[in-house]
Design a protein around this nucleic acid. Sequence first.
RNA 1: CGGGGCGUAGCGCAGCCAGGUAGCGCACUUGAAUGGGGUUCAAGUGGUCGGAGGUUCAAAUCCUCUCGCCCCGACCA
Length: 476
Amino acid sequence: MADKVTPRSEDYSRWYTDVIQRAEMADYAPVRGCMVIRPYGYALWENLQSALDKRFKATGHVNAYFPLFIPMSFLRKEQEHVEGFSPQLAIVTIGGGEQLEDPLVVRPTSETIIGHMYAQWVRSYRDLPILINLWNSVVRWEQRTRLFLRTTEFLWQEGHTAHATYEEAEEETLRMLNIYADFAQNEAAVPVIMGRKSESEKFAGALRTYSIEAMMGDKRALQSATSHNLGQNFAKAFNIQFLDRDNALKTCWTTSWGLSSRMIGAIIMVHGDDQGLILPPRLAPLQAVIVPIWKSDAERAGVMESAQALAKELDGLRIKLDDRDDVSPGFKFNDWEMRGVPLRIEIGPRDVAQGNLVLARRDVPGRPGKTTVPRAGARQRIEEMLATIQSDLYARALAFREANTREPRSYDEFKAAVEDGFARAWWCGSAACEAQVQEETKATIRNVPLDQPGGTGPCIVCNSTATEQAIFAKAY
RNA sequence: CGGGGCGUAGCGCAGCCAGGUAGCGCACUUGAAUGGGGUUCAAGUGGUCGGAGGUUCAAAUCCUCUCGCCCCGACCA
């Protein structure tokens, strides 16, 4: 666990799996494509969960739980939906030793069973909107899996709402997209681009899909969350209808939106370095670790007393005093760096004598990241430094993305751009141009950013007049 | 599903071609010293060699079958 990881420049995907395992975030499970999220990784998930959950609650959503099993017949009710998901389904055909008449699908997502229940719960416009979120796991039989990024079973939340009008549904879809972006940027320190998915990349059964996209450390894109305006597709398939004020029977408009444990992969890949993880202070399971240093037993007593007092002063922050007696301070430095703890507090005999502490920032390796601060008022300094680390991580990631995003003028420039980063280019909107790009470059349209320059330009592929720019990149 | 690779101690590997009853590094245990950037020395623990069958006096090693995993591609949060 204390060995060095594969450098990112040598083999990025090896680095990624090395770091996760060495930092004890997750481990491979004995089931193909599945992982065990270990306590350290789960603690990160819990922090992420609570930051998101607060935002959901603040916008009027409530949590509920829906079944793991969904009748196969439900999925068939929405044509596009079942076509999109059938290759990825795990299906239970035997229960209690008997063949099931209607096989049960292990949920790949819950739109259908939600639709079934909402149809029963909605009678009047007074019942709307319904704003429910689920924290659960889903199963999609993926062919190629990677820890956190794509596993057969993954943790996520799925929000499902029903509204009286199209406008309200669209407003909700965008509201949640903004919440995801706010969360990603302010909690995870991951800069994201909000945008609309192309027809070919949208959710199976949606009218329109929006996403937030982030650039990883290897310059590839990762879709970090999605928000779908489902139109009336599911409402019609499941008869979610209500009697409106005008006494007319109308069909609902629904939305769904999700963010998964994949976000943990994004945090790892956006911030990590060759020393290991770098976790954003607001989500890190441990915000600071105190490493006491001593030589003699006499020094030990004084140092430990001071370290324990400091730990008490820092109550309320997520702190650990590393009092292990069997490893050297140097080992502990590297160990906690591997795990991405944002701040290390060193306290030794010199510091005790002089009334100082040494603070070492994880995001600034080596000497330059170390500062000696007076023991008095340390808590405030530490809190300030955590806030600085949080915003510096975001700024650094944003600068990296901008440095690796190009606006090519020609198709040749475009091809070079998507080889090594994001390309922002005019796109005429045709599926043919999109397919050609994918065929020739392996890059896909990540999304059409909500933030557009206005005006028109020549489509990067076919030169015809385009009214929107899209982000093209190779993606996870 | 196509291509490639690998299964020998917890992890990483050697041994296999030229069969003779399993070894190295790390980790782990114990002890001592050490301790401001991955500490050292000493002594230990730990393996039905992925599984099944076959050849042989004898199989990690040769033959047949099988299972699993990882990596790269097409599909996906």
